[in-house]
Design a protein around this nucleic acid. Structure first.
Lengths: 217, 217
DNA sequence: CCTTATTGAGATCACTGCTCTCTGTTGTGA
DNA sequence: TCACAACAGAGAGCAGTGATCTCAATAAGG
């Protein structure tokens, strides 16, 4: 009477090997990206898989599509690392420990995956426009950091100006700041967001300039 | 009796038009770089100049050579802007004014030349290895900032720990820090260099993330 | 079992960086 | 003044790229 083995509509053996194929293509592409830098060659990837280049177009509509998939995976991998690093701190009230854990996750991931980090935070590809999926995946990491701040604010540990080392918010950036705040952490005082952004930028700079980072000098 | 018109060995009309040619090639290349992003096409540049691609090789040994020339020019233009911004502050004792002026010069140049800024501080080109000329030109900007700190230190305004808002130097980065210090600002206390580097990284992050910057999100 | 969708191969096009050869011009020394 | 050498550019060509199209083989589902 076992009517259906799985609740999934139809694993459809074909769809399975297709998904595996896509994964293998991405894996090979990632290897090439790590080995040779930002210019990914579809034909070289196809060669490495014993295929002909045109066959790859059954799985990705274009080279940009493949890059987009890699970028999306990268953002999600980084987001996973940062989210689980934050979640690993048992005492949710230990804001400093949570922040440090998240920041170290960013740095650790960047050091472990320098090519992908450069792909995410390096110079954008010429005509490349990030799809919506990409930007929501990209937001995961800053969202974790922002939540640490909002947790601190709502629990009363961070009470606004003076609770974090931060100068006054320059008038020139206040407009951008409130727009960002409303999108990512509504209700957070601007001073806290400013301090958090400052830390995030510094983290970004340290990681980018660090060994294997995407920036020179 | 006017033996020599100029002290230069021989302007050699030919060398003159050759230099102008090189300048024009670089100008066209810069335009293409600004219009289409990081992938510069030698053939397109040649087409824009009414030449055939192989003719460009009379002036640049390879595409990387042309890119190197553009990068060098970029570092020098940025260095000029920052140096003159620092020099524009008449009262050399006004460290804060000098620092702000230099930082604003970096930001201003980056906003005015986003493509070149991305070329300098974005993802490195795959097989590209920066020649020595490049790294000394690249050092000009940090050198200006470092000199502001050393001026403050030698004049007694900055007297070491506590004179700038900066936490203790983490042990993990102390070794790298002293190596950098010896190369760029010998004699400067590590705490000051650390504070300066922190500011420089933050400046870099702000500029890179800012409108037209090379980083996304 | 047969129809249909999916997959990969192969050819082809336009483009790229780069090399080579060949011609015309231009500067220079005898 | 004149010949020679250096130079600049054109053109063909090579190997490689992304992308498209057609065609045969294979596998899935009715």
């Amino acid at each position: 009477m076992c009517a259906i083995i799985s609740v999934m509509p139809a694993p459809s053996i074909r769809a399975r090997i297709r998904a595996e194929m896509i994964d293998e293509i991405k894996a090979v592409a990632r290897r090439h990206l790590a080995a040779e830098g930002a210019n990914l060659s579809l034909r070289a990837v196809a060669r490495d898989m014993g295929m002909v280049s045109s066959a790859l177009y059954r799985y990705f509509a274009s080279r940009d599509d493949l890059l987009t998939a890699l970028i999306l995976d990268g953002y999600n991998a980084l987001g996973d690392a940062v989210e689980s690093a934050d979640a690993a701190v048992a005492d949710r009230g230990q804001l400093r420990a949570r922040w440090l854990s998240a920041a170290r996750a960013v740095r650790g991931w960047a050091l472990a995956n320098p090519a992908e980090y450069a792909l995410l935070y390096g110079s954008p590809v010429p005509g490349y426009a990030a799809p919506q999926d990409t930007i929501v995946a990209a937001a995961r990491t800053p969202v974790v950091l922002a939540r640490i701040l909002t947790d601190g604010y709502s629990s009363g540990v961070l009470t606004g100006p003076g609770s974090l080392p931060s100068g006054p918010v320059p008038e020139a950036v206040r407009a951008d700041l409130t727009r960002t705040r409303d999108g990512i952490a509504p209700g957070l005082p601007e001073e806290l967001l400013h301090a958090g952004l400052t830390c995030w930028l510094q983290l970004f700079g340290v990681v980018s300039f660090g060994p294997g980072g995407s920036a020179r000098l």
